[in-house]
Nucleic acid binder design. Structure first.
Lengths: 251, 251
DNA sequence: CGCCTAGTTGAGGTAAGTCAATTCACGTGG
DNA sequence: CCACGTGAATTGACTTACCTCAACTAGGCG
């Protein structure tokens, strides 16, 4: 468990050699702590470092000129923070910790060097980035075309699935430090409506979100209700070639 | 102009050497044509090839279980089609041509081989992918937090900016083969409402969309109205800015 | 004790959706 | 050449999902 969460995540995707793990290890330059509510990366900033989240939760968001906020995604341990900012050389969004967080810093130059010298690692990182993009796309679909309750259900399920992959959740539920305001800005609703929708889902016996804990009261009917497809979260990478489970699902 | 649009796009981001251009050239295996309305990639399919769009327009989308469609993005010449599907090894979305299109096919194995043997090319492709992701994020923000008219204005401006980069548009306007139904599914509105919003923008003297042509009647006030920030579309890559050190290491 | 933040609930407003009718351009076959 | 069908755009009338405003509760903490 003191294996870096990122190594664990990438390892689940492709087997990494000793040498590759070593390169990965050397990337983690410095461990830092940031405190809840204090911006880590700011929109428009020219970034020279990305971070890997070790513990705690964060979220990336954009602010519109009229002050509204849209949360793009939440990050949990093992996720990159600001990877896109480094590649694009400027941050198009801000990142803020939800809780106090621990991260390790990765300098842009070290990252590019490591990726060019270790092609398989580059593939693995590219895979991670693609998986993140797939989540953003799914999020987009939800906001664009799902009703409020379905959106909420889908959101809670996706978060649960992601947390399960790093051992922080199960089909029973998970600890969740988010406020209803954060969820509102993530799924494009008002905080008031979030509250109503949560009540509805609770009264229908599907999920309960209370006191920082999400409990799946009836996982299966929630999945059914939310039209939740978790295949896009699968830990299946190129090495696993067209693996049996994928084929089964496609068939 | 018979330069491959992709080479032109990547070239704008970082200067590519002869050798790198040559690798890029060899990627283009086979030129193919697809016809308007016939699926090119299907949701759930296990992909072994991506495509580079040479001419025509396409769109990537997802279908929900209740039959609703959310269009994630439109692709124009120079864009990759299905790059994420290849990296993730399964397509999480479908792609369909809007018009008849010409593409060149890129086999997954060739792509991975080229990227691992030519690190700078990998960086460039990673940059392209990140730029696409930034667009999806901006799209997400629009759907989540902007009103219908602002969303439409922003959408038309973004398309214009992208088309300008490949010489197919200007601040005066551009040819646009999209129907109001496609736009509706892209920006999360009903087709009827799209029509109303277009009328409103036209009557306010900002944009006119008629007969397959978008005309910016007052570009500046449209930008103002839409809160349009085009920085995320900049053709600014690592080479352009802080990059001397980065390049030195990568090279 | 008083203040702040998070959550909860009600009443009423509004942006956008649905349903439906009409027009127009286009192609196709009688 | 015209009748017909089809897909796109347009507009009106009505509905609804979600928002806003506002009041109130409950817990944490200086």
């Amino acid at each position: 468990m003191e294996t870096r969460p990122l190594a664990r995540k990438l390892g689940a995707f492709m087997a990494l050699s000793e040498a590759e793990l070593c390169v990965l290890e050397r990337l983690h330059k410095r461990r830092r702590t940031f405190f809840a509510g204090r911006d880590l990366v700011h929109q428009g900033q020219a970034d020279q470092a990305a971070y890997i989240l070790v513990s705690g939760w964060a979220y990336s968001y954009k602010i519109l000129h009229d002050g509204q906020r849209q949360i793009v995604d939440f990050q949990i341990p093992g996720d990159f923070l600001g990877l896109r900012s480094v590649v694009l050389h400027v941050s198009d969004h801000s990142i803020e910790p939800v809780t106090d967080i621990e991260v390790t810093e990765v300098h842009a130059s070290d990252l590019f060097k490591a990726l060019s010298e270790t092609p398989r690692l580059a593939t693995a990182v590219f895979w991670t980035a693609s998986r993140d993009e797939a989540m953003v796309v799914e999020h987009l679909v939800g906001i664009g075309r799902r009703g409020a309750a379905e959106r909420m259900a889908h959101f809670l399920l996706e978060l649960g699935a992601r947390l399960s992959l790093v051992g922080m959740g199960s089909k029973a539920g998970y600890a969740c430090p988010l406020t209803q305001y954060l969820i509102a800005d993530a799924i494009g609703l008002s905080a008031v409506h979030v509250n109503r929708v949560l009540r509805q889902l609770r009264e229908q016996g599907m999920v309960t979100f209370r006191d920082g804990h999400v409990t799946f009261d009836d996982y299966d009917s929630l999945v059914e209700f939310a039209d939740f497809e978790e295949s896009y979260l699968d830990q299946v990478g190129p090495t696993a070639q067209v693996s049996a489970p994928v084929l089964a699902r496609v068939a």
